[in-house]
Design a protein around this nucleic acid. Structure first.
Lengths: 206, 206
DNA sequence: GTCTATATCCAGATAGAC
DNA sequence: GTCTATCTGGATATAGAC
């Protein structure tokens, strides 16, 4: 009996995962409000009514997705922070990986779009607004600290570390938004151009 | 009689302008779908029914706004193109002005947000989609050409001019999106950091 | 021109059959 | 668990009074 219960739990969770994926596709394409419950159900291959056995409302799915997206972003920034290298190298490596991810991971682009959408609308569930207030500043703070450490070390350009962090993330976000709707293969990004904003000459050579 | 007719025309247009401004405020805050006709009418200080004497639908207002926004962006890029200076100086000057505008003009931020919103949603009127397809590439092409000219001149860094143009606009757009919801005065932008992505050392000194 | 009141439609959420 | 059918609320757009 216990096993059957466990199996059910697992099946239920995998079904919810399927619904979340379907919802993410629709939300990034159409936005929260233009997406109908029916659209999500159709994308997930189930009837509209059945969706309510897994989520009690459209908003609840949205909040779940936002929470996931924010946690992923925070986790990624922590993995950069905890690297066993110099601050300058952390910035260089992070940009290299982020650009590569922008070019190859649709999931990453979707995550960026969802967060941007949520951050730029007052018409989202209050729970989502709270999560954003709570979690969104972490990646900015992480990069700000690395920038400050890099300046002490002499590998990062002068200027307010907070500003450098804002430039770092807004460049990445701007690119992600652009590539999410222009997945044209005719533009190949070179992360070193962006890196040259932050790293002083000596570092650029690497 | 002719004068009265003319006056009426003018009053009608100024009323429509008022409605457009109200709609822009609501669209950038809530998005096209979450915004109700009622919200626009309230913001414009008129009754809901009256709005239909000026616009026949919410979509029609949206299309009008998108068209304006795209035309403004194109006009701005042409004014940079037609400057009587070197390509390197054009890039430097354009960035200086754009950063200043991001910091001080709410209207500019709203324009960027509206275009970003429209570009990133399939759930907008087809007329708006057509306008975007038609007009959106112009600013990219203008900057691309300046970058290429600057490379010949020896003031712009190496790399695909198309990529440089994409980096130029996505940086600006990313910043505009960030500042439209974080109008914190505690971060002062320095355009020279961004300029250092594109201009080679000799130019940076300016 | 401007308002209030209303008809119509459509999406979210629920109920009930299988 | 899964579906179809239905209730309900709310927004768009229209009609009609002033």
């Amino acid at each position: 009996m216990a096993r059957s219960k466990e199996q059910n739990e697992r099946m239920r969770e995998s079904r919810k995962e399927k619904i979340r994926n379907a919802a993410l596709q629709q939300f990034v394409k159409q936005g929260l409000f233009a997406t109908r419950i029916q659209d999500i159900a159709a994308e997930a291959g189930i009837a509209q009514g059945l969706l309510y056995h897994y989520y009690s409302s459209k908003d609840e799915i949205f909040v779940d997705l936002i929470n996931d997206a924010l946690d992923k972003t925070i986790a990624a920034s922590y993995s950069v922070r905890d690297m066993a290298t110099s601050p300058g190298e952390k910035i260089r490596y992070a940009l290299e990986k982020l650009i590569e991810t922008i070019e190859h991971s649709q999931t990453f682009l979707d995550t960026c779009r969802l967060i941007t959408q949520a951050t730029n609308s007052t018409a989202i569930p209050v729970e989502a607004q709270d999560l954003i207030r709570e979690k969104r500043s972490t990646p900015y703070q992480v990069i700000e600290q690395i920038m400050a450490a890099g300046q002490k070390e002499g590998t990062i350009v002068a200027g307010d570390p907070k500003m450098l962090s804002v430039l770092f993330w807004t460049s990445i976000n701007g690119l992600a938004i652009y590539f999410s709707t222009n997945n044209n293969q005719d533009v190949k990004l070179d992360y070193r151009v962006i890196a040259s904003m932050f790293l002083i000459e000596r570092e650029k050579e690497k």
